[in-house]
Amino acid sequence: MKVTVLGAGAWGTALAGHLAKRHDTVLWARDSALVASLQQRHENARYLAGVMLPASLRYETVLSNALDHAQAAEALCVIAAPVAGLRGLCQAMRDTARVPCNLIWLCKGFEADSSMLPHQVVAAELPGHGSNGALSGPSFAREAALGLPVALTVASVSAACRERTVAAFHHDAMRIYTGDDVVGVEVGGAVKNVLAIATGISDGLGLGLNARAALITRGLAEMSRLGVTLGGRAETFTGLTGLGDLILTATGDLSRNRTVGVQLATGRSLAEVLAALGHVAEGVRCAQAVLALARAHAIEMPITQAVCAVLFDGVAPRDAVSALLRRDARAE
């Protein structure tokens, strides 16, 4: 199978390396210096230092050439850009008049300005393109790149897209599950990043494992309330892209969003934390969009509200936790 991956960040690179073990794979990046380094070293020293990529993996800087590689009906195109870059990349793809038949995206979050989910952005910029979907689940790029076991879900209303995705990715230590609840999968992938910041704050303050378990459990309730209201199915949030991804992102040491919370708990400013991180932390970008949607639909999301207070309103992490603890008792 021919596969094109658009975006050479950590996750795009990791999946391109996985795909290249079985398929004719091209990895595209607009940064010519990064591509030159990839071609020379077979390693993404910027985002996945120390992980060697298959010699068969090819690289491209010209978008139209990369899209040409995925034009066949049995080919697959994978968008590995963050949510903030999704709209612009879709526009650039549309302008080339070479949008592939089967298209999936990896990004998790709400678009900051519009509060739109990724599938809504794709629908707005690539109208009528129905063979597409989201690939999501509990996954750290480095572990996947090293060939460690990982399970993901592809959500699409298109059976052809689901089949192409399984055919491309389901091999070696990677398992792919399928479903059609695109909204539920995307809401889970977005909200878990915000909740991971909350858990990081709790751990950074030394509040203990009891507090961590409570935040994850009550956070899952917030995620489910929002997701069902937006059109997702309740059972999706107990699966890989809901509970599974939440547990990983809230507790794993490789989690960028958890790291943001831990560092904020030490008293560092958000600007300092993000500068030191060097990677995108999607929970910061989409927290306000999540809270705005909750308020628009009259949904209680107190943990999300507390995270936004710390990130954007200057509230001290310990004070935000105290406010949560002062909430009235209620039925679960």
Rank of each mutant, 00 (worst) to 15 (best):
214 A>D: 00
21 K>I: 03
248 L>M: 13
10 A>Q: 04
268 R>V: 01
42 H>K: 14
123 A>M: 09
27 L>T: 05
133 G>M: 10
295 R>N: 14
325 L>K: 07
222 E>A: 04
163 E>S: 14
127 P>W: 10
106 L>E: 03
282 E>P: 07
70 A>I: 03
327 R>F: 10
61 T>I: 14
154 V>H: 00
45 A>I: 10
10 A>W: 05
43 E>I: 06
286 C>S: 15
91 Q>I: 11
77 C>E: 04
96 T>D: 02
214 A>I: 01
30 R>H: 15
51 V>F: 06
188 G>F: 07
124 A>P: 01
253 D>I: 03
222 E>K: 07
41 R>F: 08
117 L>R: 14
150 V>I: 05
160 A>C: 12
204 G>H: 00
129 H>E: 09
205 L>N: 03
219 G>R: 00
32 S>A: 14
323 A>R: 15
316 A>Y: 05
49 A>N: 14
49 A>Y: 04
128 G>V: 12
6 L>I: 15
3 V>Q: 05
150 V>N: 12
271 A>H: 11
189 G>E: 10
7 G>D: 07
61 T>A: 07
249 T>M: 07
212 R>F: 01
197 I>M: 03
42 H>S: 07
294 A>H: 03
279 H>T: 09
193 N>F: 03
217 T>I: 04
101 C>D: 12
39 Q>N: 13
134 A>C: 13
315 V>C: 13
25 T>K: 05
180 D>G: 15
188 G>T: 06
217 T>G: 06
181 D>F: 02
45 A>M: 07
122 V>R: 03
282 E>L: 08
10 A>C: 06
110 F>S: 06
87 R>E: 15
264 L>K: 01
242 G>A: 11
157 V>E: 11
277 L>A: 01
252 G>V: 01
258 R>E: 00
40 Q>S: 13
35 V>S: 02
83 V>I: 15
115 S>G: 02
191 V>P: 12
93 M>F: 11
282 E>Q: 12
115 S>T: 13
300 E>Y: 02
77 C>T: 05
102 N>W: 04
221 A>E: 13
133 G>P: 10
271 A>F: 05
263 Q>H: 11
199 T>S: 13
325 L>D: 08
86 L>G: 06
52 M>R: 15
186 E>V: 06
185 V>M: 08
157 V>M: 07
131 S>A: 15
121 V>L: 14
127 P>Y: 02
241 T>N: 09
145 A>K: 06
288 Q>A: 14
133 G>C: 12
136 S>D: 09
293 L>K: 06
156 S>H: 05
327 R>E: 10
94 R>F: 08
198 A>W: 00
233 R>F: 01
90 C>D: 12
69 H>W: 14
241 T>S: 13
153 T>C: 13
247 I>C: 09
236 T>D: 04
85 G>F: 09
178 T>H: 04
47 Y>T: 11
28 W>N: 05
55 A>Y: 08
101 C>V: 13
245 D>Y: 11
10 A>H: 02
103 L>F: 02
136 S>H: 09
50 G>P: 11
